[in-house]
Amino acid sequence: MTLDSPPATAPPPDADTDGGKARTRPGDRIFSGLARGSGITLLVIMAAIAVFLTWQASIALAENQGNFLTTFEWNVNADPPVFGIAVLAFGTIVSSIIAMVLAVPVSIGIALYISHYAPRKLAAPLAYVVDLLAAVPSIVYGLWGALFLVPHLTGLYLWMDDYLGWTGVFAYEGGAARSLFTAGILLAIMILPVVSNVSREVFRQAPKMHEEAALALGATRWEVIRMSVLPFGRSGVISASMLGLGRALGETMAVATVLSPSFLIDPSLLDPGGGTFAQNIAASFKEVSPAGVGREALIASGLVLFVITLLVNGLARLIIARRKDYSGANA
């Protein structure tokens, strides 16, 4: 006991908090204040956006003569105005789902290749090129899509129509491929860098011990990835996908440039037509007559997009929270 005297002479390690606030350093206080302020500011901004959107939307909804959720029309300059978001919600969600289906597997492939397969000399430049994809402005993707991708997709769509046309979803009548599916392909390319970059970082952090243990047990490289890398990275990949989905849901210019906007829901995803929230806002904003509620109506559609994005993010959090318990990394 006498050997353990230091605690008696020196102040205990947590004396700073016990001994009163006078000992807190000013730098700590300033920094914690700034950090807390930033957090609060973020909440205030989000709340302000929500309040503004709701307030403006309520003005438009009061004037709307159609059902906001089910009307297949966007006629805000008419008197009385008639508009609904059915087509926009369908187009936004469908084009984003197509983008996810196409982009996520490819992104995971890219991420695994860069983090586990590629020789180091190739991995770095490859990662750099994928990063570059994210730096291309969306309007450039849009122009590329409209001038190059659309004319070159006709062949693929005719082929899809031949073999999958019976589903109705992939029926194609010919004509310019300015459809939701084309928008989905474009969105897939646009979200590729986001999803693959985040996934790559997660895969890189997979515990080396697990991988080496698996190798020591005689696993092949694919078995190593399946047993130790993928389970560890699962929640990270989901987060990455959600980041990408957020971008796909809100993408504006690329979709507006490539789509042939219409207010009909076509069962075929390959035939031209459809619309998304952001595309409709970009295209209709300049048409709005200052007298009517056109601007407020667009804001109301923006509110729906806001809510959809919130729901999607919430869902992703739920999935991640559930998966965490089963994740191999935390076992």
Partner: peptide, 19 residues
């Protein structure tokens, strides 16, 4: 099909056979 602006319609007519 639709396109934005006269230039958009003209571009599409020029691009698509049968337009």
């Amino acid at each position: 099909q639709s396109a934005s602006g006269s230039s958009g319609v003209a571009t599409n007519v020029k691009q698509n056979e049968g337009a």
